[in-house]
């Protein structure tokens, strides 16, 4: 599919914008963490759309965000267990 552009996003209603971004991010995150892809994508979708668009363009910023999400999840799970 053609790359998602800011103008395409702006044309979509807000709820669809998150779904659109999610469906682009999901496969990229799935390649990194298959079992946590849905959860991580959900966490990243709370970031504002402009940063999400940037992450779609630059894999390294996506990777660092995904690592951050993993760390936050693990810290959260540890807290829940203890």
């Amino acid at each position: 599919p053609e790359p998602l552009t800011a103008s395409m996003l702006a044309a979509a209603p807000l709820m669809d914008q998150k779904q659109l971004l999610g469906e682009r991010l999901y496969p990229m995150i799935h390649a990194l963490h298959p079992n946590l892809a849905g959860k991580i994508t959900g966490m990243l979708l709370e970031i504002d759309n402009s940063e999400l668009l940037h992450m779609l363009e630059s894999p390294e910023s996506l990777h660092s965000k995904v690592d951050e999400a993993i760390a936050v999840l693990q810290a959260h799970q540890v807290k829940e267990c203890s």
Partner: peptide
């Protein structure tokens, strides 16, 4: 800086089965 990511964010459900390329 405090991470702004929310561990309680609800899971994203891809509408179509977003197969990784």
């Amino acid at each position: 800086r405090k991470s702004t990511l929310n561990p309680n964010a609800n899971e994203f459900k891809p509408r179509f089965n977003a197969q990784p390329k």
